[in-house]
Each structure stands twice: as C-alpha cells, then as structure tokens.
C-alpha cells in the first residue's frame, strides 16, 4: 500500500529536510488548521440555523422554530414549540398566536391590549422595553421585552423555587391578522438561547426600521402591574 509506505518512509532516499522545510511545514499546518476552523464555523452555523416550519391561517403565515425543539399545542391560529432538553425547570419556548384585526384597530392598540392581558395573567409582570421594528417587507412591528415569575414545578405537583422568566413579544399585522410571537426563557438562560431565538426572528426578517442601523425608536411604555 503506497500510502502506508509514504507514511513510514516519506523520503525513500533518507534525504534530510532542506533548511526551509520546517517553515514551509509551519505554514502548511497553519493553513490546514485555519481551513478546519472556518469549516467548523460553517458547521456551527448549520446547527444554529437548522429549523422546522409551522404554517398558520391556511398557509398565510410561515414561522420557523429551531429544529431540535418540540412542537406542542398547534392549531391553525398558533403553536408552541419548546426546548425539552434545557437545564431550567422552565423550558425555553416560542409561543405564537394570531387573531383577526378588528375594524379600526391599530398595532399600538393591539399591543396595549396584549400588555393588559399579560399583566393580569402573569405573576410579577414587568415591562422592560418596547421598540418599533420592521418585519418582512417593511411591515411595522412592536417588540416588547418583559419579565415575570413562573412556577413550572408546582404545575407538575412538585415543590421547587419559582423561576424568573425573561420574554420578548414581537407583534405585527399581516394580511388583516394580528400576530404575536412570544420568545420566553429562564432569565439566566436568555443569552444562551439567543441563537435559537434568532431562527424565529430571521424567519420573519425582524430588523430595525428601514435598516438604518440606528437604535430602534422606543414605543411608549406600558406600566405593568404586579399581580398579587
């Protein structure tokens, strides 16, 4: 076998390496390692971008969620996908819901209604920030970041500490429907879930208005009320 012979005896004449050979080898090794690391970045991005798609409202809307997440509670107007293998009792998730836009209703009004609803449903609801963004081909969207306290273990009948959840709602109107995409994770895992959430955000092409690159404009905040 030629390759084994070459492996054992790279120089059939016992010729010593030329003076410049070590430096040449250094460059060859460095190039190979660099090439491998670039390939690895490709593998990493492949994992980050691996996605599945859910369609809503008779195919009007198509939203991606990370490939390794599990789909739950899907109907024609919404779905929930969760990461079951997370390290927190509160599973990182995306919850999508939609409804028909009422006559004369604006996106801002829809957002206000949503905030009222969350404030009454969630424990220790706190709205942190709300900014104007764009989705798809420039449709306006409002991104609201908030926090609340969840008690996932008590729902399962077990005793454990409650979890502070960080969440972000992306709300927009498309073809007469109001959509709310809610990204939620244990606050301590919010940063590490960024790549998974990017899959969802990228599928609706969420961006700052007109791609100006400037900081998005803040929307008037909602003073959240903690539920007793």
């Amino acid at each position: 076998m030629l390759w084994v012979d070459r492996l054992i005896k790279p120089s059939p004449t016992n010729a010593p390496p030329s003076p410049g050979e070590p430096v040449r080898n250094d460059l060859a090794v460095a190039t190979t390692v660099l090439f491998a690391l670039i390939l690895a970045l490709g593998v990493r991005n492949q994992v980050y971008n691996a996605a599945q798609y859910a369609t809503l409202n008779d195919g009007r809307m198509r939203i991606a969620y990370p490939d390794r997440w599990v789909l739950r509670e899907q109907d024609d107007s919404g779905f929930t996908a969760v990461l079951l293998a997370g390290s927190s009792a509160y599973a990182t998730r995306v919850e999508v819901s939609s409804r028909l836009l009422r006559e004369g209703e604006t996106l801002e009004q829809a957002r206000f209604e949503r905030s009222l609803q969350l404030a009454s449903e969630l424990t220790a609801y706190r709205e942190l920030e709300s900014v104007a963004m764009q989705v798809f081909d420039g449709a306006p969207a409002i991104v609201t970041t908030y926090g609340f306290v969840a008690d996932p273990m008590s729902e399962l009948g077990a005793i454990d500490l409650p979890v502070v959840v960080e969440a972000q709602d992306i709300q927009f109107v498309d073809d007469g429907w109001v959509y709310v995409i809610s990204l939620r994770a244990d606050a301590t895992l919010w940063e590490s879930a960024a790549h998974s959430f990017a899959v969802v955000r990228n599928s609706i092409r969420l961006r700052t208005p007109d791609d100006t690159g400037s900081a998005p404009e803040a929307v008037r905040g909602f003073e959240g009320v903690a539920r007793p």
Partner: peptide, 14 residues
Amino acid sequence: GQARFEKTSVFYLP
C-alpha cells in the same frame, strides 16, 4: 519525528 529527520512532502505534516 519523521519531518525532523527526513525530507517530507508539503502535505505530510498537515
């Protein structure tokens, strides 16, 4: 060790 003592091709160490 081989590259230390023998002439090798440019692909050997990589």
